[in-house]
Amino acid sequence: MANWNENRTRQGFGTAPGQTGEVQTRTAFDAGLRKHMLSIYNYMASGVLLTGIVALFTARSGLALQFAQGPLMWLVMLSPLAIVFAMSFGRDKFSTGTLQMMFWAFAVLMGLSMSTIFLVYTASSIASTFFATAGAFAGLSLWGYTTKKDISGWGSFLIMGVIGLLVAMVINMIWPMPGLSLAISFIGVLIFAGLTAYDTQRLKQEYLMVSQAKMTNPAVAAAYPLGKMVIMGALSLYLDFINMFTFLLQFMGNRE
Rank of each mutant, 00 (worst) to 15 (best):
N3L: 04
N5T: 15
E6S: 05
E6F: 10
E6Q: 14
E6D: 12
N7T: 15
R8P: 12
R10V: 15
Q11S: 14
G12P: 05
T15Y: 07
A16T: 09
G18N: 07
G18F: 00
Q19G: 13
E22H: 05
T25Y: 13
T25K: 09
T27C: 01
D30T: 01
M37L: 12
S39R: 10
Y41Q: 03
Y41A: 01
N42V: 15
Y43M: 12
V48H: 04
L49E: 02
L49H: 02
L50H: 11
L50D: 13
V54P: 06
A55V: 12
L56N: 10
L63F: 13
A64Y: 00
A64L: 00
L65I: 13
L65C: 06
Q66V: 14
A68F: 00
A68I: 00
Q69E: 11
Q69C: 07
G70W: 00
L78P: 00
S79L: 15
S79F: 15
P80I: 06
A82E: 08
I83T: 09
F85P: 00
S88I: 10
R91N: 11
R91F: 08
F94Q: 02
S95T: 13
L99S: 02
L99Y: 03
M101C: 12
M102A: 14
F103Q: 11
F106L: 08
M110I: 10
M110T: 13
M110V: 10
G111C: 05
L112F: 13
S115P: 08
S115M: 01
F118Y: 15
F118R: 04
A123D: 07
A123P: 02
S125A: 00
S125Y: 01
I126R: 09
A127F: 06
S128R: 00
F131E: 04
T133Q: 05
A134H: 03
A134P: 03
G135I: 01
F137C: 07
A138N: 06
L142M: 15
L142R: 10
W143D: 11
T146N: 14
D150R: 07
D150E: 11
I151W: 09
S152T: 14
S156Q: 11
F157D: 12
G161V: 04
L165W: 06
V167D: 07
V167P: 03
M177G: 07
P178V: 01
L180F: 04
A183D: 01
I187M: 04
G188R: 04
G188S: 08
V189E: 03
F192L: 02
F192E: 00
L195I: 07
T196I: 05
T196V: 07
A197G: 14
T200E: 13
Q201S: 09
R202D: 09
L203P: 06
K204W: 08
Y207A: 07
L208E: 14
Q212E: 07
A213L: 10
M215A: 11
M215L: 12
T216L: 02
N217A: 12
A219W: 06
A219R: 04
A221C: 02
A223E: 12
A223F: 10
P225N: 08
P225Y: 06
G227H: 08
G227Y: 08
K228S: 11
M229V: 05
V230P: 04
V230R: 01
V230I: 08
I231N: 03
I231F: 09
G233H: 01
S236K: 09
S236E: 11
L239F: 13
L239C: 09
F241P: 02
I242P: 06
T246Q: 09
L248E: 00
Q250P: 01
Q250I: 05
F251H: 09
M252N: 08
M252Y: 00
R255Y: 12
R255A: 10
